[in-house]
Design a protein around this nucleic acid. Structure first.
Lengths: 181, 181
DNA sequence: TAGACGAGAGCGAACGTTCATTCGCTGCCG
DNA sequence: CGGCAGCGAATGAACGTTCGCTCTCGTCTA
């Protein structure tokens, strides 16, 4: 993961990975049948991690606040050197069909959790019931991806510090009329 | 551009580029000193294109609607096979400092135009003057990047068709209280 | 208990391929 | 005739992957 994050998908050679792992190519190939397999394993690993991100949403005072907390947590993970993997994987997945297939279940799971959270938010009166949840979900996922991308591309913007403001804007967008904040 | 879009930055070999361009390597190297230089030229070219995207914003009935028109135009360009270049460039720019330096002026220009449009929108009463334009600008740019990324990653979502809904949500978010729609 | 054995982890030189780039050349045109 | 566009085989480096090897164990046999 360190190699892929540092050098990108194609810049990370098996030899560099071997050096980083303190292994010979032969040993590495005993664990992974190919370079692609390593990438797939990383995606799978990330997927397992993501499963628990949504755990605490329901316990938060507000669902939308809880989702914001998830985002914050995601961004703080992104401080790690492995963080550039996110955009890297997305860009590669556009062209690389097998990788896309590996990523898709992870995204689908995220959407399922997100949708459940949004339905809960509607039930709690945080979201205007007149809004289409499909559109809201897509927009929130778009914002999530965009925030991660921008956090990598412009770390100097300190997006984490702006999350409260973003939260306020999202509430304005979703709250039932006359119940802003 | 066709090669880079089809095969990605590292997948596009000089030989494929030569084939696509109907040129020999020698001829290609007479025009560009290196592969990186080709990429830089593409970025510069895109930059010139972007300059005119904002031209029609002020003529639109509403500024926000005009910005949405820009986005639509951008997405329609993305239908072309060269479209995957956007996410590709972004992901690469995270790691590749020279490329980032080439991209940055383009982004800065976009921000300048976007900010001018937003100020005009405040003046026209489309945006709640109590909002911080900095935050709004960042959020809109994030949404723009996210939409382009998702459009590539999930073309089957037909985001273009959802733009009116997204527009409505953005208006909810930005409009002064009691003036939604 | 001593020793032979086999499975598998690890090794690293070597393989064939492909990469970006070079260079000596040809032919065109002012 | 001189400059330059274009050519394409050649270059060396780096790539992902392979393979025959050694070493380390746990297990089985005498």
């Amino acid at each position: 993961m360190a190699c892929f994050a540092r050098d990108g998908f194609h810049g990370a050679s098996m030899q560099k990975i071997c050096a980083e792992a303190g292994m010979s190519p032969g040993a590495l190939y005993r664990h992974f049948p190919s370079k692609e397999a390593i990438i797939a394993a990383i995606v799978e690993d990330e997927r397992a991690d993501r499963l628990h991100v949504f755990d605490e949403v329901r316990k938060a005072p507000t669902i939308l606040g809880g989702l914001m907390g998830c985002l914050r947590q995601l961004l703080e993970e992104q401080t790690l050197p492995t963080a550039t993997l996110g955009p890297e994987i997305m860009a590669e997945a556009i062209r690389n069909a097998p990788l896309r297939a590996a990523v898709e279940p992870c995204e689908e799971e995220t959407r399922v959790h997100l949708r459940a959270a949004l339905e809960e938010a509607v039930a709690r009166g945080e979201i205007d019931p007149g809004l289409s949840l499909d559109e809201v979900m897509i927009l929130l996922q778009i914002m999530g991806d965009g925030i991660i991308l921008n956090h990598q591309l412009h770390p100097e913007w300190r997006i984490t510090a702006r999350l409260p403001d973003i939260h306020r804007l999202v509430v304005r967008m979703l709250a039932p009329a006359g119940r802003e904040g």
